[in-house]
Amino acid sequence: MLEVTDLAVSYGPIHAVKSISFTLGEGEIVSIIGANGAGKTSTLFGIMGIVRSRGSVRLRGEELRRKSSTEPTAKGMVLCPENRRIFPGLTVEENLRLGTFVRGNFSEMVKQVYSLFPILRERTRQLAGSLSGGEQQMLAVGRALVASPEVLLLDEPSLGLAPVLVDEMFRVLTNLRDRMSILLVEQNATKALTISDRAHVMQNGRIVHSGEAGAMLRDDKLRKAYLGM
């Protein structure tokens, strides 16, 4: 589905991502885990064309032009960014409408999002900035889903959520897997590995370990070395 080869991202002299390669299969959930500053978010920004990057990104075998995020999004790869990044001064509905800016059928998809997150339906006309943290995270995921992604890139969907909401969020994500492939970036490694098929561990801009998620959960040495748990 998604094939990333030799992706590299630099900010001036700082090499945030140093030539990494990985794939994401149809209907698969793959996680990228690692500490703060390992290059996880830069990887997603590079794939999406939000920051300049070298290397190749192929979606369904087709090379994506990454001059801006417009083409990757329009072709079906949609990012739900870290820290929600919703539009605080726009209403919940306007936020969701913007989710379909280059792709997706708003009137059809918004119903699905509301059935996934019923609380958003009650907040339609409210400004997004007045929502609680959990509701904002649901809105951010909802805004990505209205574009009917084929590949969903999720950056820290559990960040700043109460434990009960984290469980709820991961339950929703698991249910999405038959409709799309998911690339999940998480610091909460245990949670991420539990719902993933495969995982990559990133450290200092490189992938230092790859494997099947279940096996990684059971590998004590790996957990101690890279995941600090």
């Binding site: 939000i50 801006s68 949609v78 960014p81 990044r85 805004r143």
Partner: peptide
Amino acid sequence: KIGLAIRARGQDPIGAQAVGINTN
């Protein structure tokens, strides 16, 4: 649509790019 994109870009440039808006 363009008006909404202008407001969105002002409120959160990363969010705007996440929905495919060409902020440039």
